[in-house]
């Protein structure tokens, strides 16, 4: 487990917590998580089959964070994401078809096949981009928050980053600048204990909460695999930020189920780490809670069918979509004259 963790998700009992969510609200969160999970499982298969080129980094096991945050953000809010950002994009409202077409390298993809998995962005949805550079999203979100502040949009900037980014210098600069200027920005650390192929406990010595405290930024560390806790906490923090309270830090303890990238044999990792996975997996946990709240298995089964149909359709649409043309891509380097 990450050394900075105050919470051990593996000890949490599924369905034990009494959340504040209605069955409808929790079902919406569950649906978002399930969409991300099934999408990434499909991508894993497509990658293995050679239909997804390049590198992909899956967030399987971490969906509660994307879904929880997505449920409390508005369209005008902006997010900067990471290389493990599929869930963030979908939860912020990036169209599933445009997403699949991008990751599969099609002209009709949300970025016309220019970026792929590591660069999914949709400015119209406030998704400022996944990012291939660890930590690079932090100053981008800070700058976006500056624009919200100066333009008085009422919007909030959110940056997702992993615990692997804690050792990047821009974290410290970004915490300082956002505190100094009281910017409307939320720092969301998805702490899965791994910095690519190395345990973060061997890479970084300072708990994030203490770092935030040093900058005078309120910080909370939560069980990032409980979607209700994530949604409730994020909702409260975003509301405080929106009211002019300045930056907040939210550390979500979670677990990376897959390797750093698809195809990573993870020889550096003890398989025992994942043996109790079902107890901490955010999806069965939310399903148990739904059951407690009286949502029937039939409803969940219908949801599964519905989502698989959406993913099947998106996959087929991407397969049928045209491949990008080289000449047109060259025209996107600079803004055309007259625009």
């Amino acid at each position: 487990m990450p050394s900075s963790s105050a919470i051990s998700p593996s000890k949490a009992r599924p369905g034990a917590r009494k959340g504040s969510n209605t069955p409808e609200a929790l079902l919406a969160l569950y649906r978002q998580m399930l969409l991300i999970r099934r999408t990434e499982e499909r991508l894993s298969q497509l990658f293995a089959d050679g239909e997804v080129p390049g590198f992909i980094h899956l967030s399987i096991g971490q969906e509660a964070i994307a879904a929880g945050l997505g449920s409390v953000l508005e369209r005008k809010d902006t997010i900067a994401s990471t290389h493990r950002g599929h869930g963030h994009a979908l939860a912020k409202g990036v169209d599933l078809n445009g997403f699949f077409q991008e990751v599969m390298g099609r002209e009709t993809g949300v970025c016309k096949g220019r970026g792929g998995s590591m660069h999914v962005a949709d400015m119209s949805a406030g998704m400022l981009g996944a990012n291939g550079i660890v930590g690079a999203g932090m100053p981008i979100a800070v700058g976006s928050a500056l624009a919200h502040q100066v333009r008085k949009t009422g919007g909030v900037g959110v940056v997702f980053f992993g615990d692997g980014a804690l050792a990047e210098g821009v974290l410290h600069e970004s915490l300082n600048l956002s505190a100094l200027w009281k910017l409307p920005v939320l720092f969301v650390c998805e702490n899965n204990g791994w910095s690519e192929f190395s345990p973060t406990s061997k890479q970084f010595v300072a708990p994030l909460g203490k770092l935030a405290d040093a900058f005078g930024i309120p910080a909370e560390t939560i069980d990032g695999n409980d979607v209700e806790i994530v949604a409730d906490t994020a909702g409260r923090l975003v509301s405080e930020i929106r009211k002019g309270g300045g930056p907040r830090v939210l550390e979500c303890i979670t677990q990376r189920v897959r390797g750093h990238y698809e195809g990573d044999a993870q020889k550096y990792r003890d398989p025992a780490e994942l043996k109790d996975r079902d107890k901490i997996d955010p999806l069965p946990r939310a399903a148990s809670r739904l059951s407690v709240l009286g949502v029937s298995d039939a409803v969940l089964a219908a949801l599964e069918t519905e989502i698989m149909a959406e993913i099947d359709a998106a996959t087929e649409a991407a397969r049928a979509a045209p491949l990008p043309e080289f000449v047109a891509a060259q025209a996107d380097v600079y803004t055309p004259a007259g625009v």
Binding site: G115, H119, A121, G129, D332
Partner: peptide, 8 residues
């Protein structure tokens, strides 16, 4: 940004 986001 302009290029990799498809000229958005």
């Amino acid at each position: 940004a302009r290029f990799m986001f498809g000229g958005q």
